[in-house]
Amino acid sequence: MSMPHLLMIEDDTRLGGMVGEYLQASGYGFEQAPEGALGLRRVQQRLPDLVILDLMLPDMDGLAVCRQLRALPGAAGRVPVIMLTAKGDPMDRVIGLEMGADDYLPKPFEPRELLARIRAVLRRRAEPALGPDADSRPPLRFGSLEIDRDARTVTVAGRPCEMTSHQFDLLVVLAERAGRVLTRDQIMEAVRGRELEAFDRSIDVHMGRIRQAIEADPKHPRRILTVRGVGYVFAKQQD
């Protein structure tokens, strides 16, 4: 199996060099693009397994890069993004997740923590597709909503729904436990495991993105319902 290829879009060449050495020593392929436009071209030339994206770039906003990345043919929903945010500004994190980032990491950070997050994101993409054993699993169907856990696709009335790998995993956790109220901690534990903790209220941002993808009216959801003061529940009702 070839080593996962990582692309870091970051204008700080010193930081990129340090991160690159650490990740390459950990068994990853690595390249750095110092500008957003160049990073997007690199994605088109060679689809990476994961993008590490700085929010502040000299030529364009990192959020714009993330939005354009999600729109590139072949990259939408397939390339996970870990966004680097300065000083861990909460609003930057929320906006980044809304733009389609799978995870975020505030600067300054330890390369070891970045590596842990990379491994977690890539593992989330690989393990659900394989499942607990070699047997395929039937799609989850709720009226016009269909969730194919093996193909990792979601459709509503046959229309593909775009979401990040992390959002797909969150949806599966809820759908597999339809009718059961889950706390935020229970949901994040099921998705992330114990390696990483849930951060702030990022799960609420992801739930908003999932609703936009699958609900006819995201402001008045019928599938993913908020249980105030507790968490979320996936409603069993049919269309």
Results as ranks from 00 to 15, higher is better:
94 V>Y: 08
102 D>K: 00
81 V>D: 08
104 Y>C: 13
91 M>C: 12
73 P>S: 04
94 V>D: 14
74 G>E: 05
101 A>C: 13
79 V>H: 03
76 A>Q: 14
102 D>F: 05
94 V>E: 15
97 L>S: 01
75 A>Q: 14
93 R>F: 07
95 I>W: 12
90 P>E: 03
82 I>F: 07
85 T>M: 10
85 T>S: 10
86 A>N: 09
98 E>S: 07
85 T>C: 10
89 D>G: 07
75 A>V: 13
98 E>H: 09
95 I>S: 06
82 I>K: 00
77 G>S: 05
84 L>I: 14
74 G>W: 08
78 R>D: 15
98 E>L: 04
99 M>Y: 04
104 Y>K: 01
78 R>L: 14
91 M>S: 09
96 G>N: 07
86 A>V: 15
99 M>V: 11
102 D>N: 13
93 R>Q: 14
89 D>Y: 01
88 G>E: 02
102 D>R: 00
100 G>M: 09
76 A>E: 14
92 D>T: 06
73 P>K: 12
91 M>R: 03
79 V>K: 02
96 G>L: 10
78 R>F: 11
89 D>F: 05
80 P>I: 14
81 V>E: 07
95 I>F: 09
79 V>R: 01
101 A>R: 00
87 K>Q: 14
87 K>A: 14
99 M>S: 12
99 M>W: 04
91 M>T: 14
81 V>P: 01
74 G>H: 07
93 R>G: 08
86 A>E: 10
80 P>K: 03
74 G>V: 11
100 G>Y: 08
85 T>E: 11
73 P>T: 02
102 D>T: 10
97 L>M: 13
85 T>N: 06
85 T>L: 12
97 L>H: 06
77 G>E: 01
76 A>Y: 04
79 V>D: 09
80 P>S: 15
77 G>N: 06
100 G>T: 13
84 L>F: 12
74 G>C: 07
98 E>W: 08
83 M>G: 01
102 D>W: 03
83 M>P: 00
73 P>Q: 08
78 R>M: 13
77 G>Y: 02
79 V>S: 05
